[in-house]
């Protein structure tokens, strides 16, 4: 594919938006450690992915998905993360893509899987600096605009909207104590925090740039809506019960499990095991 054509593809769009976020966040914070982390993450991701593809003896190797995974990891990990934590997180992400796969499609969103495991394994700190979590509130619309652009390009509005509605309503219901769930985190300031930076930045970035990963999310409208509902409900309940910063990842992995089960038990003919053309075209995180 010619570079000009590729840049207009969904993958190209996502890459441009992520690079724009990297540039804006670095320039606004006057902190260039993020660029260094991004270079480490992207180089590691591409190298690990290439090695995995060679081991699997793939005929065609596309490394743009690994490039995007590396960028997402770099934009979320704290700027103070040591280089080996960045590289190791990316390694887990790429390995999950190759090892935890069903019908040649990754079961879990690679970046999400790596970031989730990086907390207990590497003690990684995640600041979502690339979603402008530490910057003035007026930069929040930039996340929205970039996210809308990507969501529109890959046609994932149903799941983004259903996620947003369920996530917001569930937070409110849990915080108000209507349900007999001991959501202590929400009642002690967690609800207040969830609606403000950096948490709202993280939720928007997550919903529109991670949740929408085509290989690990459904394509049909009804499936998208249910997928968004599962992720939103699981994420908000985890946040309410335990607080912390990994609730969005757990929510998405819950959605990925649903997607994998749906895929496994769907009555598809064997030949349909190959990825659908449009999905293949739009996959960008794998």
């Amino acid at each position: 594919m010619k570079p000009k054509v590729w840049l207009k593809s969904p993958k190209g769009n996502v890459l441009l938006i992520l690079l724009a976020f990297l540039g804006i966040a670095s320039a606004a914070s006057r902190e260039w450690d993020g660029v260094k982390n991004a270079l480490i993450a992207v180089a590691s991701a591409v190298a690990f992915d290439a090695v995995c593809c060679l081991i699997e003896r793939r005929k065609r190797i596309f490394l743009d998905g690994a490039f995007i995974t590396g960028l997402i990891v770099a934009l979320i990990l704290s700027l103070t993360s040591p280089w080996y934590v960045v590289a190791a997180t990316v390694a887990v992400s790429i390995l999950s893509k190759h090892l935890l796969a069903y019908r040649k499609k990754p079961l879990f969103n690679p970046a999400t899987f790596g970031l989730l495991l990086s907390v207990p394994i590497f003690h990684a700190q995640q600041s979502w600096w690339g979603a402008f979590g530490d910057l003035p509130v007026w930069l929040l619309p930039v996340v929205l605009i970039g996210g809308f652009w990507v969501t529109n390009r890959i046609q994932k509005f149903p799941q983004v909207f259903s996620f947003a509605v369920v996530y917001l309503l569930a937070l409110f219901v849990l915080a108000s104590g209507i349900l007999p769930i001991h959501a202590e985190s929400l009642r002690t300031g967690g609800f207040y925090d969830a609606l403000r930076p950096p948490f709202i930045n993280a939720a928007l970035f997550f919903a529109m740039l991670m949740l929408t990963d085509p290989p690990t999310s459904p394509a049909k409208t009804a499936d998208q809506v249910l997928f968004g509902v599962i992720v939103g409900a699981a994420g908000s309940v985890i946040y309410g019960l335990f607080g912390g910063l990994i609730y969005l990842y757990i929510g998405l992995l819950a959605g990925n499990v649903y997607q994998a089960l749906r895929f496994k038990f769907s009555k598809r003919p064997t030949r349909a095991a190959r990825p659908e053309p449009e999905i293949q075209t739009h996959r960008y995180l794998s």
């Binding site: 529109n152 046609q155 994932k156 509005f157 149903p158 909207f161 947003a164 509605v165 917001l168 309503l169 937070l171 409110f172 915080a175 609800f191 207040y192 609606l195 403000r196 394509a219 049909k220 409208t221 998208q224 449009e278």
Partner: peptide
């Protein structure tokens, strides 16, 4: 693919904006 009409995108976005704004005020 789930192509959504612009009208619905605007309506849904507005509805989510209202929910967010209400909860933001309540959280204060």
């Amino acid at each position: 693919m789930a192509k959504m009409k612009k009208k619905w995108i605007v309506l849904c976005s507005a509805a989510i904006g209202v929910i967010y704004a209400s909860e933001y005020v309540a959280s204060n």
